[in-house]
């Protein structure tokens, strides 16, 4: 939280009615490196990505370890999470072949879920998925998987069916083919990454602006007196958004996994 307050600390509470930082990028860039290896700075964002990975792995390890008949309460909760990804997403969308893709989908779901929930975790308050690196690499992996599966299942006809769709009248076929080519191979990964990224950026922005404004106005009560009441609606609104952001975090993890599964499914059964 102190990073947030530092970012908006130049705010003049006796004139402004909301504390916005000079440049919103300040909220997403941690410049000071914790330590450096060569020219690579190990910043707070990098640390949080590793932390998200460790938390996701620890949850799965401690939830599912051992070969027990009656799982613990925590284990049962994690099992229901894994079953949800396996049954609802992998089998529900891709079909019986979905078992092959369950490990990938589960990894995406867990890392994105933990990364998103960092947004509302006290003392972390930074969704690692709001830096483009993580969504982009997930989108690229999904792209590689669905293109590879498409070509290995259908051969070259995967590409030909995309750019020369037989079900479209001949006059429009070239146009539909062009649109399909761009949308399948270019727009799909871009929108997959941008959707998650932009949702998390928007959430983080709203939370930091509202909650930091509230805190700064209350903190300046000695200087500005009754004017600090302006901070109250910002803080209350911020708490409302806080609850909403928990829902968004879980929903976006679900949606990116669901869409990854849908894209793989269109390669496994291209006729649908």
């Amino acid at each position: 939280m102190e990073d947030v307050i530092l970012a908006a600390s130049s705010c003049d509470t006796s004139v402004e009615i909301i504390c916005a930082p000079e440049n919103v990028l300040e909220l997403f860039k941690f410049k000071d490196a914790l330590f450096s290896i060569g020219q690579f700075d190990f910043t707070r964002t990098v640390f949080l990505i590793f932390l998200a990975m460790a938390v996701a792995m620890a949850i799965l390890y401690f939830g599912l370890r051992g070969n027990r008949i009656v799982p613990s309460k925590f284990g049962a909760a994690i099992e229901s999470l894994v079953t949800f990804v396996k049954e609802e997403i992998a089998h529900g969308i891709i079909g019986p072949e979905g078992s092959k893709y369950t490990p990938y989908l589960l990894s995406v779901f867990m890392i994105v879920l933990v990364g998103n929930l960092f947004e509302v975790t006290p003392f972390i308050n930074f969704p690692v998925t709001s830096s483009m690196a993580l969504p982009a690499i997930i989108a690229v992996l999904t792209w590689v998987i669905f293109v590879f599966v498409g070509f290995s299942k259908n051969g070259i006809s995967y590409l030909i069916d995309t750019i020369w769709p037989k079900s479209v009248p001949i006059g429009l076929r070239w146009l539909v083919g062009l649109i399909e080519l761009v949308s399948v191979f270019l727009l799909r990964p871009v929108t997959l990454a941008v959707r998650l990224f932009a949702n998390m950026v928007a959430g983080h922005l709203m939370l930091t602006l509202l909650l930091a404004s509230g805190i700064i106005f209350f903190g300046d009560v000695a200087d500005i007196g009754a004017r600090s009441i302006i901070g109250l609606p910002w803080f209350v609104f911020g708490l409302g958004i806080f609850v909403f952001e928990i829902v968004v975090a879980v929903l976006q993890a679900y949606i990116i996994t669901l869409l990854s599964a849908v894209y793989v499914q269109t390669s496994v059964h291209p006729e649908h």
Binding site: T191, V194, R195, F197, A198, N199, V201, A202
Partner: peptide, 9 residues
């Protein structure tokens, strides 16, 4: 929603 988010970015 993708369109709105692209606009936001």
């Amino acid at each position: 929603e993708a369109l709105a988010l692209i606009g936001f970015v």
